[in-house]
Design a protein around this nucleic acid. Structure first.
Lengths: 222, 222
DNA sequence: GTAAAACTTGCTTGTTTCAAACAAGTATTT
DNA sequence: AAATACTTGTTTGAAACAAGCAAGTTTTAC
């Protein structure tokens, strides 16, 4: 039984109980992943740190992969919603700049959730089908969003129709991943991360020229 | 006792024995990491698949982190040497283009070693100090090499002195990481990877303009 | 309408299995 | 015979699952 709450004897519904234990175990998992890594975290500790028994995490999520799937899904959805709000109704380069800024804020906020999210993100590269599919899904949605922004920018007349939409979107997503990697392995240097986001925004400006000027791609092909 | 080799009864030196068992365990580890991921690989299986007892890998490398340190160091050194040969005495943009091409060949060669190397690379993001320091070292060397190429390109008069050397080098390394990530999670699409390397080369061309023209950075700041 | 019985679900505790880690032993080279 | 490569025994601890207890929820009886 979770500590505290001795005052109210009113019986909580089962839905409330699971919601609370889920939330507490999510928080515990985030802490432990940041402290000991995804590999070093044990289901036993997650349950106990959340204020329950050693067995609850295993019972609720089935296994470690199930727990991590839950964690990534929960934080990922939260982040995608925040990203949507930050971008708003912007399109084209403006949308990409807003998204980049939101991402910069997201990872420089010093939130444990962000760090745990990306630790799990990179841990899923191996042939573990469980987590991988969840992350691939988030990744694909991200990239589709970026493609949509560019396409709407073209339709809007802000971006040249000659740009290779999927190629630029892919490049953007890859660059974000690269930045996140740098941040994870050297989290101390805060200004470095801001600089990399600024660089990326500027690079995307070159990749998405207005219709009048030739696309950067053609410029470079002598 | 490793199977085969029944013909020669000539006693092998101890150095030869360890060299062989090291090599066999390296190969076994690479296979297992690709099959089951870094997490799913066990020291027991590594020893047994290499043709030895269940205990040898643990005895030789101390623990799993030690094995992975060995694997990353071995493959990493091999790759850095290959990279050095590919770049040769080139400097500036030519060096970066050659390095990008070499990297494209490296990861599109379909070699299990490459895949295992990068699986371990990404697995080290958590707070596991052991592997992390080895990888951080390789990462730092890569980035220093890139900085040197750019600096020599500037000294050579091929590249504008106005470019922010560390910033561009960092961006290049981050982009490579991003591409590797894409390759690891969706290894099927071969042409996608080539396209991303081509994009990167072209982007670097914009980031490293010749001395006459203004740097891309200044161009974008309206 | 309400109270007790029947059922469902949240959570805990026992138990098995298996890998990690290390100690102690055997075989091979010097 | 001394040292080194390698193997085997043993302990510890987590994962996974089964079985049980307790709290919540629905059904039935009056």
């Amino acid at each position: 039984m979770p500590a505290g709450q001795t005052a109210a004897q009113a019986p909580r519904s089962q839905a409330e109980r699971t919601a609370e234990s889920d939330a507490r175990m999510l928080a515990a998992a985030v802490e432990l992943i940041c402290e000991k890594g995804a590999d070093g975290t044990t289901l036993k500790e997650v349950g106990e740190r959340a204020g329950y028994s050693r067995g609850l995490a295993g019972y609720r999520f089935g296994n470690k992969a199930g727990l991590y799937r839950f964690v990534v899904r929960a934080i990922g959805e939260e982040w995608l919603a925040e990203l949507g709000r930050a971008v708003g109704r912007r399109v084209g380069l403006a949308a990409i700049h807003a998204a980049t800024d939101a991402h910069a804020r997201f990872i420089s906020r010093g939130d444990l959730k962000t760090r745990a999210f990306y630790i799990l993100w990179f841990s899923s590269v191996g042939p573990e089908p469980a987590l991988k599919s969840v992350i691939a899904h988030i990744h694909a949605r991200r990239q589709q969003d970026v493609e949509q922004w560019i396409l709407k920018g073209i339709a809007n007349g802000e971006v040249s129709a000659e740009v290779d939409v999927t190629s630029v979107a892919r490049h953007f997503c890859a660059a974000i991943i690269g930045i996140v990697y740098q941040w994870l392995v050297t989290p101390d240097d805060q200004s470095r991360i801001s600089a990399m986001h600024a660089d990326l925004k500027q690079q995307m400006g070159l990749s998405l020229p207005p219709p009048g000027k030739a696309a950067a791609r053609e410029q470079a092909d002598e």
